[in-house]
């Protein structure tokens, strides 16, 4: 969990490399995660994997994505394609957005950390897999709802 926290904020900070570092980091982490999942599923341990990773992963992965989004926003502000505004002005305008994204990622990570410490590590028979998977799915739906439907409404 601390590793994922460090990864997410490193992804944000690597936005200073014009976003290249962020993309590399996210790709690398995706590959690792995908490889681990593939290994478990091929071994027939899919349900165990879902019960283990879903409760905190449903929130932690979006947190990493949020932070890397912030990194890409920073990289975009640095690059400044199609913009006549000087670089310092671009950075000034994007600063509060970055802080908001970082704060959101931090909140997600804290929640994921709590869930991971006190819930995810109790496997069968203490906590049934179904309960954990349902919990994870509910979390995922909440995250999707939050990103999809909350916030300012645009009357287009």
């Amino acid at each position: 969990m601390t590793h994922n926290t460090q990864v997410s904020f490193l992804a944000l900070a690597l936005g200073m490399t014009f976003g290249l570092g962020t993309m590399v980091l996210v790709f690398y982490n995706g590959v690792i995660l995908g490889a681990v999942c593939f290994d478990y599923i091929r071994d027939g341990q899919g349900i165990f994997l879902a019960g283990w990773l879903l409760p905190h992963g449903a929130v932690e992965i979006p947190a990493i994505l949020l932070a890397s989004q912030a990194g890409l926003v920073l990289g975009h502000a640095l690059l400044g394609w199609n913009s006549r505004v000087p670089r310092s002005e671009r950075l000034r305008s994007v600063g509060p957005d970055l802080a908001t994204l970082a704060g959101g990622a931090a909140v997600f990570l804290v929640w994921a950390g709590i869930v991971e410490s006190f819930f995810s590590q109790y496997h069968e028979p203490v906590v049934p897999y179904a309960a954990k998977i349902v919990f994870g799915v509910i979390e995922l739906m909440a995250v999707v709802y939050f990103f999809g439907f909350s916030g300012a409404q645009h009357d287009d």
Binding site: F9, L10, L12, A13, L14, L98, A99, A102, G103
Partner: peptide
């Protein structure tokens, strides 16, 4: 907040 977060890099 931003300048302290960028300590990572």
């Amino acid at each position: 907040v931003l300048r302290n977060l960028l300590r990572f890099v």
